[in-house]
Every structure is written in structure tokens, then in C-alpha cells.
Design a protein around this nucleic acid. Structure first.
Length: 791
DNA sequence: CATGGTCGGGAC
DNA sequence: GTCCCGAC
């Protein structure tokens, strides 16, 4: 596909976190709100502001308290905290809900962030163009749509109907595509709102950069089209810094070296000129984007490539003891475990690598960041304990600066840790050989399975080998069994109910507030795909309810799962236990899981063969519908089974969480830390008196005689040059402290570590510097580094 | 002390 | 494999 003839869309949720909070608490609707995080200090940091509050002058970069001053009636829902850090699970889940809706409509979807996705809808547009006369497109097919260069979308519609009118550059085909694209995007956005309740904005253009650029031009709940012939008009006033990739330091460099500010001014330079001022790649990229050209394809990617969590420890909260380091690593590792477990269930994959990142305070007060990676071995059980233990190991092995002082009783770290992060990545699909075998066992045997069925079932993903709590498992199955049984009885005695919108089991279970009644109702509601499934075909589907959309307020956080199970079990006490039914139920759950693994396998296989058509609903096949739980497309006749599969998985996840809770209670923290004394003895790093960074980085005065530093490429006045070189030496030494012990000799100096407050010139030179330039060791010119230390 | 926690990606 | 940048 010619990249100039695409229809690319950026969907961006409007103040997403606020919308999520409004949906969860409808009382907030219409009121000014801002979502904050960590409210104890000055009312918390604002990370999202809804449009009511924006109208009253509330912005990001404000603290909660400031917002209250501006707008006393503002509501400030807070991001929940878990394990001492912000927990954005609910927003992540909400973002996934949205993306699943988008996925139904588009063949190519790239999730760009928690609330943004690029779509390539070229194929849909062309199909629509075949079946539709462009002259029948009217502006009321695309409400809330704007087009750059036009007062109203109607004018663009007219232009297309009139083949461009008097506009010379008008490209009829292109404009038609974008117009039809706008119609489709209207439909998509309507579907998003319909199915999730969230509003979004969209940009529609022929590439990602432009779609992104115009997406924000009309908000909220609006969409903007950028036809090619309006690009120059836009660029006449568009700041270079507004363009994606140019919003940071590179953008500054471009503006400063060319002494320009606007995109239109970029067009004056030839490709070669740009390449000579920047590098070849960046030069070409700038040359192209100045002409509205961006070849970057929309990648088909729904799932994140890595899962990570991190936390800063600013100011006084910097970690200084081994104990606090371990505590935070444990929390981070546990969060990874939780998220990984969810990911394994949904995506049948597991990570092959973990990375621990950290930054420590240097002796001059600045931060230096590093990361170390570890490739998992087959013997590793991917759990929080492993992540935190390995992270600690990597930290202590590789970062001398983090080792605890052995001369102090309180085991203080030698350098305060300002940042910690663990992430896992390099995902690979799980092999399904084991489960295939189990499947054979099921399909070959009769329904009279033996009691060892359970032991043969391995959980999906990596989370195997846990001691299963039979009581809980059987209790749950028993309840579900009863639940289904009652639903069937209810159905028989109440046939007319089966076609109504009312929950079938309202009278028997809902009133008693049973955990499982709520759980099943909620679960099944999620699985219910509107108007598409006849749910009366299999016994299990009887539990599905319709309507009652307002009941998303169910909250189990108050009571433990045990409590709920006991409550639920008590409800059935009057009936004798039916052992056979329990075992049947267990088989049903397990076989459901297995059948769906088959379906999933076939999906993964087709994805591998045809990566560009990942999870795409086949438009020609009406038998395919998309599961609202996982986004996968399932054939109609398999859907009931598939939905049950999710139910089974959810139940099993409940079990695991319960087990983990218990484990956590009984387990004392395992200290796998090696004793610091056993490590290679490195001489104590002498203390450096903190020297202001201003002493190293001096202002550039072009008129004064200066010399280019071969280390950082920066111009330095001659009288400051020696001191400047000393800075690099000091930095080098500081960095040396964080080298792996094993490779601490004769390292190549890399350069300034962080560019906090670094000037663009620094980066400009750095960018231009090729690896060919040999790095001279200016030892002879340096004052002794010892002068910076005081014994 | 003060946008923080996540992501993806490029350079070397 | 590390480090850093850009963006939300």
C-alpha cells in the first residue's frame, strides 16, 4: 500500500482518567474534577483535568491545593495506592475496554498509550468507497467533524462533490478517502461511546504524525480531518515543537540551529542541507515531515511489549538503607507478578527477560541512572519473589554504589537511591504441548473422568506448581454447580422469563447478595455481546443476564473471598452435597479451558502467519464475533464455550489470589541477600564535597575565547577548560562506582550521564559526534582528581 | 524535594 | 546490553 494513500487515524480519549472516575462515580458528572495522585502533599499532583474544570482555569502541572484555590468546588478523585505506589489498574483496564471496541472496526491497530491508538482504516475506506457513491456522503454522516482549512465540514463535502472546485492542489481521490474515513471514524467513536460510555477525539489524515497533530485541534468529543491541500496552511502558523518527536530537545536543536520556529520555515532547506546539519536519518525525516510526509506504518500491536513498574524517591525519601531497598523491590516485584499473571491468562505468553533500573545520587548531588538485565532460565518460577531477589542481586552485584556500608551497623547504602524500576519483556508465546496432551486425555475419554483430573490440569501460563486449596476450589465449583442447577430449574418452571430482559435468577440469588451471584452476573454481563448471541442454546448460557446496565457498583473490597465463599456455601446448606455434580462441574470448567486453548492456539498461529491481520474480524463472515473479555474473534458457535472459558479463568484467578494472600501472611520475608562482606573488597570511596554543578557547566560566551571539549563537544571558555575536564573525570569516577565489579577496569567513558538542565548545544554536538571520534584522555591537562575529594 | 509512572524506540 | 529521549 502506497503510504501516501493511507487513511490513518489517531483516537485519543478525552481526559481519560477523569472519564473513568466519572463512570465509576456518576455523581461526579458535570462537576469540575481533576484526578490526583499522592494527595497528602499539597493535595496531590494533578494528572488529568476534565473540561468543566479546565474552563475554570485548572491545568495539569498544578497541585490539588492550587486547583482548589482556582475552583473551590472541584472534586479531586485520587489514583488508588497499592504497595505504596500509584496503582493505575483501573485506567489500564478501561483503556483495554476501549481498544477492544476499536479492534472490532479496524484491521490495523497500534496502541500508543493507555488512552491512545493509531488505526489504519485504509482497507475499510476502500471497501466503503466501492459500495457507496461519494456523492451520497453528507455532513450529517459525520457529526462533530472539522476539516482544517474549512469553516465547516460541509465545505469539504462540497469540494469533494465538486471535484475540488477552484482549489488547484485538490486531490479528489485523497479527499474522498479522508471524507469516507471521517464517516467511519464517526461510527467508531459512536461505538466506543455506546459500548464503554467514554468520549474521545480523533485526527484523520494520511499518516500518523499528521493524524496526531490534528487530533488535538478540536476537543473534546470531536474529530478533525487534515486534507493534504491544507497542510501548508497549517504549517504557516504551526510551531515546530508541536510536531511529534520535535517536542523535546531535538526540536530545540532544530529551531536553534536553523533559527526558525515554524514548520513552514523548514521547507526552505534541501534534504542535503538538513542532513548535513543533523544526521542523515534525521535530515531526511525533517525534510519529509516538512512536506507532510511520514512513512511510519501503523503497527498491528494490541499488547504492550513490556510490563514494568517504577517509583521515584525524591528528596528526603531517597532510599538509604538496605532494608528499605528490599522492601521496595519486593513491592515492585509483587506488582509485576500480579500484572504478569493477568497478562499470561489473556495473552498466553511469558517474558524471557527482566530489567532492573535504578538511579543513585552522585557525589556532586546529581543523579546517575543505570539498568541491568537478566534472562530468565527454564528453572525460574516467574513470581514476585524471583523478580525482587534477582533485582537485588543485580543491584548489589553491579552497583558498588548501592552496596551497604559494612562499617555501619544500620547498613546504610553508600549512595541514596532516587529511582527504582523493574520491568519484564521479550515475551514469547507459551508452548501448548502440555495442554494439548491433557486435551487428548479429555477428548479420548468418556465424560466419566477420574478424580485425578485436577492434578493433570496445569494453569495457563507460568503460574504452575502451586499447592491448590481443595476446599476452596470444590466450594466454588459446588456453588456454581448449584447456581446452574437452580437456573435451569428456574427456567423450566418459568419459561416466559427466558426471553425477557430480567436476570433469570433474580429472586433466588440476587437478593441474598451472594458473592457468586454477583460475580456470575457481572461476569456474564461482560460476556454478553449485544444482539448477537442467542443465549438459549447451551445450559450454561442461562446465567447470562441482560440489561441492568447500572450495576457496575459491585464492590467486593470490603470482605474477604473466604467470607463470601462461606456466605455462599451457607446458602446451600439445606441441600445435601452432590459429589457427582461437583466433579462434573470441575470437568466442565477444565474442558472449557482446554477447548478454548485450542481456539486461542489457532488464533496465535494465524497471527504469526499473518501479522498484519491480527485479531481482525472477518467482515465477510458474519459468524465471527468479538469477545468483549479478551478482544479475540470467536466463531458464533464457539462463543458460549469461550465465554465460559473466561469465567473459569476468573475463578481460578480468584483461587490464586486467595492462595497468595495466605502465603503472604505465613511467609516471613526470605532474605536472599548475600552478605556484603563476601563481595570483592573495593576501597571505600572517599567523600567528595558537594560542588555545585554550576562550577562545571559554565555559560557559553561566544565572544570569549573558548575551546571545544572532546568529551562532550561543548564549547568551554579557555580559562575554565581545565576545570571542565575535571568535571568529566569526576563524573567518570562516579560512574565507575556503578560499574559491575567484574568489569571495572579500563572502561570507555560514555559521556555526561543525565542532561538535567543541560543545554541544547551539548546535545547538538553530542548528536553530531560520531563514534569515529576518538576520545582523548586529557589526563595530563587535568588537575589531580584528588583535589575534588576531601579525606 | 515536587508531574509520576509507564511505555516505545534509537544510538552506540 | 545500557542509556537516554519523547510522549502521555
Amino acid at each position: 500500500m502506497d503510504s501516501e494513500n493511507r487513511v490513518v487515524v489517531l483516537i485519543d480519549m478525552d481526559c481519560f482518567y477523569c472519564q473513568v472516575e466519572e463512570k465509576l462515580n456518576p455523581d461526579l458528572k458535570g462537576k469540575p474534577i481533576a484526578v490526583v495522585q499522592y494527595n497528602p502533599w499539597k493535595g496531590g499532583g494533578i494528572i488529568a483535568v476534565n473540561y468543566v474544570a479546565r474552563a475554570m482555569g485548572v491545568t495539569r502541572h498544578m497541585r490539588g491545593d492550587e486547583a482548589k484555590e482556582k475552583c473551590p468546588e472541584i472534586q479531586l478523585p485520587s489514583v488508588p495506592c497499592q504497595r505504596g505506589k500509584a496503582d493505575i489498574t483501573k485506567y489500564r483496564d478501561a483503556g483495554k475496554d476501549v481498544a477492544r471496541v476499536l479492534q472490532k472496526y479496524t484491521s490495523l491497530l497500534e496502541r500508543a498509550s493507555i488512552d491512545e491508538a493509531y488505526l489504519d482504516i485504509t482497507a475499510s475506506v476502500q471497501e466503503r468507497l466501492r459500495s457507496l457513491n461519494i456523492h451520497s456522503v453528507t455532513s450529517n454522516m459525520m457529526p462533530n467533524t472539522f476539516a482544517l482549512g474549512y469553516e465547516s465540514i460541509q465545505e469539504l463535502v462540497s469540494d469533494v462533490h465538486n471535484y475540488g472546485g477552484d482549489c488547484m492542489e485538490f486531490d479528489q481521490e485523497h479527499a474522498s478517502r479522508l471524507l469516507v474515513g471521517a464517516v467511519i471514524v464517526s461510527e467508531i467513536r459512536a461505538a466506543v461511546y455506546e459500548e464503554t460510555g467514554y468520549q474521545c477525539s480523533a485526527g484523520i489524515a494520511h499518516n500518523k504524525i499528521l493524524a496526531k497533530l490534528v487530533c488535538g485541534m478540536n476537543k473534546p468529543n470531536k474529530q478533525t480531518v487534515l486534507p493534504k491541500h491544507s497542510i501548508n496552511l497549517l504549517y504557516k502558523t504551526l510551531s515546530i515543537k508541536k510536531v511529534k518527536h520535535l517536542g523535546g530537545k531535538f526540536g530545540d536543536i532544530v529551531c536553534e540551529t536553523l533559527k526558525i520556529k515554524l514548520m513552514a520555515e523548514l521547507q526552505k532547506y534541501t534534504e542535503k542541507e538538513l542532513q548535513s546539519r543533523f544526521d542523515e536519518k534525521n535530515g531526511t525525516w525533517l525534510y519529509n515531515i516538512a512536506r507532510g510526509i511520514d512513512l511510519e506504518p501503523v503497527q498491528a500491536r494490541f499488547n504492550p511489549k513490556s510490563i514494568g513498574c517504577c517509583k521515584q524517591f525524591r528528596g528526603k525519601s531517597a532510599l538509604t538503607t538496605l532494608e528499605s531497598l528490599k522492601k521496595w523491590l519486593k513491592d515492585l516485584g509483587d506488582e509485576i507478578e500480579d500484572r504478569l499473571e493477568k497478562d499470561a491468562v489473556e495473552n498466553n505468553r511469558c517474558p524471557k527477560q527482566m530489567v532492573v533500573s535504578f538511579s543513585t545520587q552522585m557525589l556532586d548531588g546529581r543523579d546517575t541512572s543505570s539498568s541491568r538485565s537478566y534472562n530468565f532460565g527454564v528453572e525460574d518460577e516467574l513470581c514476585g519473589e524471583l523478580f525482587s531477589a534477582k533485582a537485588l542481586e543485580l543491584l548489589l552485584d553491579s552497583a558498588e554504589g548501592c552496596k551497604p556500608r559494612d562499617d555501619e551497623a544500620d547498613r546504610k547504602l553508600k549512595a541514596p537511591i532516587k529511582f527504582l524500576g523493574i520491568s519484564v519483556g521479550k515475551f514469547e508465546d507459551n508452548d501448548n504441548k502440555k495442554t494439548k496432551k491433557i486435551k487428548d486425555y479429555f477428548s479420548a475419554g468418556t465424560s466419566k473422568g477420574t478424580s485425578d483430573v485436577k492434578e493433570n490440569i496445569k494453569p495457563i501460563g507460568h503460574t504452575s506448581e502451586r499447592t491448590t486449596n481443595d476446599k476452596i476450589a470444590v466450594g466454588k465449583e459446588y456453588i456454581i454447580n448449584k447456581f446452574f442447577q437452580q437456573s435451569e430449574e428456574k427456567l423450566k418452571s418459568n419459561k416466559e422469563l427466558s426471553n425477557t430482559e430480567k436476570p433469570i435468577l433474580e429472586s433466588s440469588l440476587d437478593k441474598q447478595e451472594s458473592f457468586f451471584a454477583k460475580f456470575l452476573n457481572n461476569t456474564s454481563k461482560e460476556m454478553d455481546v449485544k444482539n448477537k448471541i442467542d443465549r438459549s442454546t447451551t445450559p450454561v448460557c442461562h446465567v447470562v443476564t441482560r440489561g441492568n446496565e447500572t450495576s457496575n457498583d459491585t464492590d467486593y473490597s470490603g470482605s474477604t473471598i473466604d467470607d463470601e465463599i462461606n456466605k455462599s456455601v451457607a446458602m446451600f446448606e439445606e441441600n445435601p452435597e452432590d459429589v457427582d455434580r461437583v466433579s462434573d462441574m470441575r470437568k466442565l470448567l477444565n474442558s472449557t479451558i482446554l477447548q478454548n486453548e485450542e481456539i486461542r492456539d489457532s488464533f496465535h498461529e494465524s497471527e504469526n502467519k499473518n501479522p498484519n491481520h491480527k485479531n481482525v474480524p472477518d467482515n465477510n463472515n458474519v459468524e465471527t464475533i468479538q469477545c468483549s473479555d479478551c478482544g479475540k474473534c470467536i466463531t458464533l458457535n464457539m462463543f458460549d464455550i469461550h465465554a465460559d472459558y473466561h469465567l473459569a479463568l476468573k475463578l481460578r484467578e480468584e483461587e490464586r489470589q486467595q492462595l497468595r494472600k495466605e502465603k503472604e501472611k505465613t511467609n516471613t520475608v526470605v532474605d536472599k541477600t548475600k552478605k556484603p562482606e563476601e563481595k570483592t573488597k573495593k576501597q571505600d570511596i572517599p567523600k567528595i564535597e558537594v560542588k555545585s554543578i554550576a562550577n562545571f557547566f559554565v555559560k557559553v560566551d561566544d565572544s570569549a575565547p573558548s575551546k571545544m571539549c572532546s568529551e562532550c563537544g561543548k564549547k568551554v571558555p579557555i580559562e575554565k577548560f581545565v576545570e571542565h575536564l575535571d568535571f568529566h573525570e569526576a563524573q567518570k569516577l562516579s560512574r565507575e562506582i556503578n560499574r559491575p565489579v567484574t568489569t571495572s577496569n579500563s572502561r570507555e567513558f560514555i559521556g555526561p550521564v543525565t542532561n538535567t538542565n543541560s543545554r541544547p548545544e551539548t546535545n547538538s554536538a553530542k548528536r553530531k559526534r560520531k563514534s569515529t571520534s576518538p576520545i582523548k584522555k586529557p589526563k595530563v591537562q587535568c588537575k589531580s582528581i584528588d583535589l575534588f575529594f576531601r579525606q
